[in-house]
Amino acid sequence: MLGLTIDQLLFLVRGAGWTLVLSLLGFVGGTILGLPVALARSSKLRALRMVASAYVQLIQGIPLPVIMFVVYFGLSIGGFEVPALVAAGLAMTAYSSAYLGEIWKGCIQSVPKTQWEAAECLALTGTQRFVHVILPQALKIAVPPTVGFLVQIVKNTSYSVVIGFFDLTYSAKVLNNSTYKPFLVFSIAAALYFVICYPLSLLAGRFERKLKRV
């Protein structure tokens, strides 16, 4: 089929599966680490804000492939022999936590100040104010940009090719080396990425329009 055997096509699809696994790791890790970043960025304590801000600036100022390499070599000199998936997962976690933290900080801050004041008038404690009043409103605003960022995560897992993680991009590279049909192989790979990313893009757009109408 298409000048490739079924096995070769399945090889690409399996690569796409690993891309999804890595994306999921990146998103889950990014959420776990990104939430504290967002909270620290909108904290009242200046020191906390500065630390979080420095972290975000640091991660956003280094290319993801370089982060991958640093994690990969850093783990190995630390004496950990880990599969490339772990290194790539950690790098994706660092990367997405910085961006998600920044996105969510914006969402928290876009909740009008009067909401904080109203909650205070109702004698809610600081934590209660945040959890019961601010967070539900911020979450609603956060959905479209977060879904939009998922597209970035999926696409950027392709950078794990530099440390040899067997994702879709790496599989396509290997398959091209053995079949030497670059247009075909990379077109199929691009199509697979598109099939994953485009629905997410559409969904993000739909959520955004829905939010605007409310």
Partner: peptide
């Protein structure tokens, strides 16, 4: 716009570089 924004840069570069070579 949609084709480029929904595929990774690495794949685009490989497509162009290796594809045109063929």
């Amino acid at each position: 716009v949609e084709a480029i924004r929904n595929t990774p840069l690495v794949i685009q570069v490989f497509w162009l570089f290796f594809g045109l070579a063929v």
